[in-house]
């Protein structure tokens, strides 16, 4: 517990590949919205300290799958999940499992930056406060500073910690949301098209950030842009019409896809 945490330089983990242990394991996952089946028999492994990109045309079920991993689908009425998803070997759909505890371990960053209408500081401190992570103000300051630093935001907001988080620029807001997620120190971070509402420069900044933080976390990212998947991810999974068509190492998927549909999608034939 008290191990001193240091930031691992990105270069050192770049080579982590097929050898990493599996963190999230999905087997035979089906999701229904009422009568409609949104996901069909998905099997997917997400490995530690890797970025796994979920790609596919709109409505293919990639976001649905993402939201299964921290059970955010629970709040949607009429949504039903079957099959097994485990986090470090623990079934997260087990009836005994505590959703609150799960979500503390699996953080999430959303499509549109959604900072709370609070100060920058309070946004980052929100998670640590509800999870009782800091015994005093000093510890909380430490967590906030480290999280902002890791999200690459500390320098920009150092003088604006008490200003509302909603007053930051779009890219800064999204990095604030990442800092907010990091602050809880989750094992997995889910990102649902985190750059779709941002301009190219802010996007580049976030992509850099993702690559930096993967040393300490496991990241699953849904993206609409194949270039982005190619840039940031080590593994890629292609979804089509609720099915997981193909998953594998990113370079492989983009250079020699096995499935015709994958090929069609990455060459821009549809989607």
């Amino acid at each position: 517990m008290a191990a001193i945490e240091t930031l691992v330089p990105p270069a050192k983990v770049a080579a982590a590949g097929a050898g990493s242990p599996v963190t999230v394991e999905a087997r035979d996952v089906n999701v229904y919205y009422g009568e409609k089946q949104a996901l069909k028999q998905v099997d997917l492994d997400v490995r530690r300290h890797e970025v796994t990109a979920l790609i596919g045309p709109s409505g293919c079920g990639k976001s649905t799958f993402l939201r299964c991993i921290n059970r955010m689908n629970d709040v949607i009425e009429g949504c039903r999940v079957t099959g097994r998803i485990s986090l470090d070997g623990e079934d997260i759909y087990d009836s005994d499992l505590d959703v609150v505890a799960l979500r503390a371990r699996v953080g999430m960053v959303f499509q549109k930056p959604n900072p709370f209408p609070k100060s920058v500081y309070d946004n980052v401190a929100y998670g640590p406060r509800i999870h009782g992570m800091a015994a005093n103000r000093g510890e909380l300051d430490e967590i906030v500073a480290n999280s902002l630093e890791r999200a690459g935001l500390l320098k920009e907001v150092r003088d604006r910690l008490n200003d509302p988080g909603t007053g930051l620029s779009g890219g800064q807001q999204q990095r604030l949301c990442i800092a907010r997620a990091i602050a809880v120190n989750p094992e997995v971070i889910l990102m649902d098209e985190p750059c779709s509402a941002l301009d190219p420069i802010a996007t580049a900044r976030i992509e850099e950030l993702i690559d930096e933080i993967r040393a300490n976390y496991t990241i699953v990212i849904v993206t609409h842009s194949m270039q982005q998947a190619a840039r940031v991810s080590q593994r890629t999974a292609f979804f089509h019409l609720g099915e997981l068509v193909e998953a594998g190492d990113t370079p492989e998927i983009f250079t020699s896809p096995r499935d015709r549909r994958t090929h069609g999608y990455i060459t821009g034939r549809f989607g």
């Binding site: 001193i4 505590d98 480290n146």
Partner: peptide, 22 residues
């Protein structure tokens, strides 16, 4: 205004103990 400095710090995990959750 809080002045924050980044120092190496202890790895802190969320307190997910049964007592606190209860």
């Amino acid at each position: 205004m809080t002045d924050l400095a980044v120092r190496p710090m202890a790895l802190r995990r969320p307190d997910l103990s049964a007592t606190r959750l209860r």
